[in-house]
């Protein structure tokens, strides 16, 4: 489970706003948040950058990886 929704809500931005910032469709953000789509590395980096965090924090689930 990624933390895109958590960080987005922390930043108080809507899915639409985030989608526009990184140039993707709102549905893509929705699918990423619900773990129904695995984004490319480029998109992950863009997301992390837009949410002011890094890849590890946003996508790395330590417990699941172990």
């Amino acid at each position: 489970m990624n933390r895109v929704r958590e960080y987005r809500k922390q930043q108080q931005i809507s899915q639409m706003e985030l989608a526009r910032r990184i140039g993707v469709a709102r549905q893509t953000i929705n699918l990423i948040e619900n773990d129904k789509y695995n984004p490319s590395l480029e998109l992950c980096l863009n997301l992390a950058h837009a949410l002011g965090t890094d890849l590890n924090t946003l996508f790395w689930d330590g417990d699941e990886a172990r």
């Binding site: 140039g23 993707v24 469709a25 549905q27 893509t28 699918l31 789509y37 984004p39 490319s40 480029e42 998109l43």
Partner: peptide, 8 residues
């Protein structure tokens, strides 16, 4: 109408 992202 709009540009397609990688998923689309």
């Amino acid at each position: 109408d709009s540009k397609l992202d990688e998923r689309q």
